[in-house]
């Protein structure tokens, strides 16, 4: 029997059609047309010149995702083992930065990382800078931190870490405690309980965490623009330039977007296959 769509679903169907399906169709149409509206594959053949941008974007996003995972998993795990009160407070603290606008948060990192920003002042005052200079025979007046790839990765990690912690935490906290007891009963010590029960059962959370960090990281343009100084172009910046910047070429922009989307979707499908057997990770 085919499930019939309830009439209450109609508003959502219209919404999805207007704001999800239509834009994707537009991107596809643009990607395959020239500026006169005719069909062409030229947009894709031009893209080879931007391979290095693709590479850089995926590299930085991958690094950021990895760091988020390395920080996020232990945090989620330890949080889930604490009392309920602690968990609630920790959850609020993790969510708190998200109540402040994304751009403002990133701006504040600028003032922290600047050459005469907060961190460099601390390094100067504590003598860490002169210590470094005397150790390595340099004569730095500050550590250059702004406009580096490291700053971009830092921005990604800072902004997207909650998206790693939340799904992992929610999976671990719901884990049936009797499974852990059963494992201990069957002779597993702490390490084995974690390795053989908790870790495999929290994999769905890890997968959706990776997805939720990687996808926005790979397509970000604000972070790289603000913290990377726009020197090392990322995919997001490249696409933005095609639509709003000097290199106005929406057809090329659409083509790049399409390719990026396809690569991301393929990555996610492969990863979900890898974690199969459990509940599927949420693709967002």
């Amino acid at each position: 029997m085919k499930p019939k769509l309830s009439r209450f679903a109609i508003p959502y169907v219209i919404w999805m059609a207007l704001f999800v399906v239509a834009p994707i169709v537009l991107v596809v149409v643009y990607a395959f047309s020239n500026d006169l509206g005719g069909f062409t594959l030229e947009n894709f053949s031009k893209m080879g010149t931007y391979a290095v941008v693709f590479g850089r974007s995926f590299k930085l996003a991958l690094i950021a995702t990895l760091i988020c995972l390395v920080i996020g998993y232990p945090v989620s795990y330890m949080m889930s083992r604490e009392g309920e009160r602690f968990q609630r407070v920790a959850m609020v603290l993790i969510m708190l930065p998200m109540w402040i606008n994304f751009l403002l948060r990133t701006y504040s990192w600028m003032s922290i990382l600047e050459n005469n920003g907060l961190l460099n002042q601390v390094f100067q005052k504590t003598g860490l800078l002169s210590l470094y200079n005397s150790l390595f025979g340099t004569s730095l007046e500050y550590f250059p931190m702004m406009n580096t790839q490291g700053a971009v990765v830092l921005g990604m990690v800072y902004n997207y870490l909650p998206f790693m912690i939340l799904p992992i935490y929610s999976v671990i906290v719901k884990l049936d405690g009797s499974l852990v007891e059963a494992a201990r009963d069957l002779g597993a010590d702490g390490v084995n309980v974690f390795r053989r029960v908790i870790l495999p059962l929290s994999l769905p959370g890890v997968l959706s965490g990776i997805t939720m960090v990687f996808v926005p990281s790979v397509s970000t343009f604000a972070i790289s623009k603000m913290l990377g100084g726009g020197t090392d172009l990322l995919l997001g910046d490249l696409i933005e330039q095609q639509f709003l910047g000097g290199a106005y070429n929406p057809q090329l922009g659409a083509a790049i977007s399409l390719v990026m989307m396809v690569i991301v979707v393929v990555c996610m499908v492969v990863m979900n296959r890898f974690g199969e057997g459990e509940e599927q990770a949420v693709i967002l």
């Binding site: 009797s178 499974l179 007891e181 059963a182 494992a183 495999p200 459990e278």
Partner: peptide
């Protein structure tokens, strides 16, 4: 043998 068996789902 646990009340709800506690079999490992994975």
């Amino acid at each position: 043998v646990f009340q709800k068996y506690a079999l490992f789902p994975h």
